[in-house]
């Protein structure tokens, strides 16, 4: 199973992967939140079981993206409805902005986050 990183480039061997949870702990078209070094990170699982991780702060006014509705490769922010792309962290046009992205891999139905690069 492939994780959220869509570049096809294998993560460097040095990468430090930290286990977060089992894939089935994140609802499909839903999300879970994990705290990482004082930052709230939202893990999203799409309908086709891709997992993406974004900082849980909307580029608009800081809304918690984890609480939004997930569809296709996007999440709609619960506060004012901006749509954020899960794979790039960019806001969808016409809105502009970008949110921090974290690398994820899914192995044996376990989700790992790159805690260090």
């Amino acid at each position: 199973m492939i994780g959220g990183e869509q570049t096809g480039i294998e993560p460097p061997v040095m990468a430090e992967w930290t286990g977060v949870c089992g894939l089935d702990e994140i609802p499909r078209r839903g999300s879970r939140v994990v705290e990482l070094g004082g930052i709230r990170v939202a893990l999203f699982r799409t309908a086709d079981d891709q997992v993406h991780a974004l900082e849980d702060r909307c580029p608009h006014k800081g809304g918690p993206l984890s609480q939004g509705i997930v569809f296709d490769r996007r999440v709609a922010c619960p506060l004012h409805g901006w749509q954020i792309r899960l794979d790039t962290g960019h806001a969808c046009a016409p809105d502009e902005g970008c949110v921090r992205r974290y690398r994820i891999k899914v192995e044996n139905d376990q989700v790992f986050i790159a805690a260090d690069d």
């Binding site: 990183e5 430090e16 992967w17 930290t18 286990g19 977060v20 949870c21 702990e25 994140i26 609802p27 879970r32 939140v33 994990v34 705290e35 990482l36 070094g37 004082g38 930052i39 990170v41 893990l43 900082e55 921090r100 992205r101 974290y102 690398r103 790992f112 986050i113 790159a114 805690a115 260090d116 690069d117």
Partner: peptide
């Protein structure tokens, strides 16, 4: 229950507790 409980990290692999970096 999952809706209301945040996840907590359990580490595997190397030991440094570095902060997460943007991808």
């Amino acid at each position: 229950k999952h809706e209301f409980t945040p996840l907590t990290l359990h580490r595997r692999g190397a030991t440094t507790s570095g902060q997460a970096q943007p991808a």
